[in-house]
Amino acid sequence: MFVVLLTYTAPPPEIDYAIPDHAEWLAKQYDRGNFLASGRRADHRGEVLLARPMSLGKLEAVLAGDPLLLRHLAHHEVIEFSATRTGPELRSLNEALTR
């Protein structure tokens, strides 16, 4: 499983202009089952994405299509972790239980 920290690197007006395309990209990733949750960071400096378990290469390919990244308006930091405890809603993704 992955936590992706997206940090904006451009002024807010440039980010705001690109957000509709980014939101459309996010919707496609949810439809494809790649993301579990996402939202804007409380400090408004970026976003947080929770990606389901997949190969790091696949995740990097998914992230490479983000319009914010393509337009050089943000960068991603990927944090990989193995879920060993989860709430009932994520039990099927608990890597410790699926081995």
Rank of each mutant, 00 (worst) to 15 (best):
A10S: 05
D16T: 01
A74K: 00
R45G: 14
V48T: 12
E77C: 05
G87R: 01
T98A: 15
E24G: 03
L97E: 06
G46P: 00
P20F: 04
Q29Y: 02
P11G: 01
L73D: 00
D31T: 12
L63M: 10
D31V: 04
F2E: 02
T98Y: 02
P11I: 02
G46F: 02
L93G: 05
A10Q: 00
S38E: 09
Y17N: 06
H44D: 09
G39Y: 03
N94A: 11
F81M: 14
T86P: 08
E95L: 08
F81G: 15
P20S: 04
L56V: 05
M1S: 15
F81R: 07
F2H: 12
P67Y: 12
Y30V: 05
G57M: 06
L5R: 10
L49Q: 01
Y17Q: 12
E14P: 01
Y30A: 09
F35W: 11
A74W: 08
A61I: 05
N94Q: 12
V78F: 06
P11E: 06
E77G: 06
K58Y: 04
P13H: 03
S82Y: 02
V78M: 09
Y8E: 02
R32F: 11
A74P: 04
E24M: 07
L26F: 06
Y17T: 10
D31L: 14
D43A: 11
D66H: 11
T86H: 09
A10N: 03
E24V: 10
R40I: 06
E95V: 00
R45A: 13
Y17I: 04
N94S: 08
V48C: 07
I79F: 14
N34G: 03
A10E: 01
A64Q: 12
A83P: 02
A10L: 05
A10C: 02
D21R: 14
H75F: 13
D66S: 08
N34S: 13
A96E: 13
D31R: 13
I15N: 03
H72S: 14
L6M: 12
W25T: 07
G87T: 09
L5W: 00
D66A: 09
A96F: 06
A27G: 10
A27L: 10
I15L: 07
D43T: 05
Y17A: 15
A83Q: 01
